[in-house]
Design a protein around this nucleic acid. Structure first.
Length: 561
RNA sequence: GGCCCGAUGGUCAAGCGGCUAAGACACCGCCCUUUCACGGCGGUAACACGGGUUCGAUUCCCGUUCGGGUCACCA
């Protein structure tokens, strides 16, 4: 007859607390009815994955929406994969997207009454529950070596049996008290395994909040609870922590679905009420015609830093993620363009069952809309702070005269039909370049239908009438007035009906001026641009272009002869 | 291979027994327009396949195929 208490004491001599002690230390939370306690529980293994932000964002939303708590727990039970500064990277990465936990790890440290929120600091807690399991005959030490395990697996494979440590293959289940005592005394390393009460021929089901009812065979594997070093495995830590911390809803990637039977079993063995689960489908990437999960290793766009470096505003990435998470988000946004995204009534049941391909086009579109809703000041701040890090020279240029930059960004901003030129801060430099002498690179290439000599004539004439004081109407009236004497039609429609007799229309003519001033065929309102550039710069550019076309016209004539 | 999950246009997706099968992004055309952008209008484009159930299947059931996940002393 096995004496479980004796074995437990032998295995965990230093543990004196009991589960009751911890139950008292971490009382149930007093929260309003229906409030969800959710969490984000990453491993500090390097940069934050976009999928992690996605999951964290959903968990946070669910907690906030229900008046609950969202906390950040660090799952650092695998020292091999741990990365230096990992925790700070996570906290900072989330903060960059406005995700700050209510509890657990937050910028500046750790907070909350249910900690520690770092698994490596919870060793005694796990050991205590492990000891309890041993005392109750639900867990046992396993002294098998890696080689033992391998040979078992080979045997199983040869016989085409399910592999793993279960049933009759779980040799250490049968160890006598004496054998255990001897091995422990001899300091033989061991892991602690669950004595699984499950049976493969029985089924277990649970109601996933996203995927609905999922039915699977029970787990009958004697899973490792504590590793050789005494550190818990994910499964065990999950059960203990989420119970003690009062988690009511676990939001996690759907790669965990297949281990949920294990978790249900663990919760039961420990006497805990299991949380609800919401398994979210991963964000996918297309490669060579097939889908696969965005990979941290292979895909730069998996890293949240990528979006940051490209200059996508955090708000854009979040909104993009919102559109993926609930397909009615876009409709809601159209109906509530100015509303805070927190006001959107998010529903887990509206989440997609299968993974969505990451769509850069869509991100760009969402981001353009986001940026178009911002004020010039916000856009300026966004560009400047991005540039400080990724394009210091450009940042310096902007910061030399913030008001000028803001004025540029104000052109056609606001109103019901705002421009949507910028998808990311990195687009700003090209968009603004011609406003800065330091960045300006003249390019006088004309549209095909305009001859250099005509361009020269247009500029020569325009130079004489240009008045920086003109408002938009006066400005355009002058451009129009130039048309007929120079052989252009002031009326685009009339020209299109009958192009004969004209060299072009006002559009062509103003294009000449536009190119002369900005070296661009397409720009926002030219009058506003010239106003910002100032009279000196405008005259200077107008003249330079005119001279260019004059000499080009001359050489063209020379060539013809 | 076992076990799970999934399958509507190029992408994201509405749909939940009877619809000319929404909408968004992308693409194309037209309109507006001094250019662009914005906006408006329109267009190309989809229910993976085979069996059932039913008066009737995109929708329900079963197979097939395909895609994804998982089978660690990693999370």
């Amino acid at each position: 007859m096995t004496d479980y208490r004796k074995i437990a004491a032998l295995l965990f001599p230093q543990i004196h607390k009991t589960p009751e002690d911890y139950a008292a230390q971490y009382p149930a939370r007093s929260l309003p009815e229906g409030a969800a306690v959710t969490r984000f529980a990453p491993s500090p293994t390097g940069f934050i994955h976009i999928g992690a932000v996605y999951a964290a964002m959903i968990a946070q939303r669910l907690a906030r929406q229900s008046g609950g708590v969202f906390y950040l727990r660090i799952e650092d039970t695998d020292k091999k994969r741990e990365v230096e500064d990992g925790i700070a990277q996570i906290v900072r990465g989330l903060e960059a997207f406005g995700i700050v936990a209510d509890e657990g790890f937050v910028p500046g440290g750790e907070t909350g009454a249910y900690g520690p929120y770092q698994q490596s600091h919870r060793g005694d807690i796990y050991q205590c529950y492990a000891k309890d399991l041993v005392e109750r005959g639900l867990a046992y030490p396993c002294f098998c070596t890696e080689e033992d395990l391998n040979s078992v697996r080979e045997k199983q494979e040869a016989q085409k049996l399910r592999t793993g440590y279960y049933g009759a293959f779980a040799h250490c289940r049968e160890l006598s008290d004496e054998e255990i005592e001897n091995k422990v005394r001899a300091k033989t390393p061991f892991v602690l395994r669950l004595k699984s009460p499950g049976r493969e021929d029985r089924r277990i089901s649970f109601a996933d909040k996203i995927k609905g009812k999922i039915e699977m065979p029970e787990n009958d594997q004697d899973l490792v609870l504590l590793k050789r070093d005494g550190i818990p495995t994910y499964h065990f830590a999950h059960a203990v922590d989420d119970h003690l911390m009062g988690t009511t809803l676990v939001v996690r990637g759907d790669e965990w679905i297949s281990s949920t039977p294990i978790h249900m079993q663990l919760f039961q063995a420990l006497g805990f009420k299991p949380p609800k689960y919401a398994h979210i489908a991963p964000i996918m990437k297309e490669e060579n015609g097939s889908k696969r999960k965005l990979s941290k290793r292979k895909d730069p766009e998996a890293a949240v830093l990528y979006y940051y470096a490209e200059g996508y505003p955090a708000a854009s990435v979040l909104e993009y993620l919102d559109t993926i998470s609930n397909s009615n988000f876009e409709d809601w946004r159209r109906a509530n363009p100015a509303a805070d995204r927190w006001e959107f009534p998010f529903q887990l049941s509206k989440m997609s069952q299968s993974g969505a391909l990451f769509d850069l086009n869509k991100l760009n579109d969402v981001s353009k809309n986001c940026i178009s809703r911002m004020t010039a000041r916000e856009v300026y701040e966004g560009i400047a702070s991005w540039a400080r890090e990724y394009d210091p020279a450009f940042a310096a240029l902007l910061e030399k005269d913030p008001d000028y930059a803001k004025a540029i960004l104000s052109i056609d901003r606001g109103g019901s039909k705002p421009r949507k030129d910028l998808a990311k801060w990195a687009d700003a430099k090209a968009y603004m370049a011609y406003f800065y002498q330091e960045l300006y690179q003249p390019d006088y290439t004309l549209p095909e239908q305009v001859a250099p000599a005509d361009a020269a004539a247009v500029l020569a004439a325009y130079e004489k009438v240009y008045d920086p004081e003109d408002d938009k109407e006066a400005w355009f009236a002058k451009v129009k007035a130039l048309c007929e004497p120079l052989g252009f039609s002031p009326d685009v429609k009339a020209y299109k009906k009958d192009p004969s007799g004209f060299k072009g229309h006002v559009g062509d003519l103003s294009t000449v001026i536009r190119i002369a001033v900005t070296s661009r065929r397409n720009t926002p309102d030219l009058c506003a641009i010239m106003g910002l550039l100032g009279r000196d710069a405008c005259f200077q550019r107008l003249r330079a272009a005119k001279e260019y076309y004059q000499s080009a016209g001359a050489s063209a004539r020379a060539g013809v002869k």
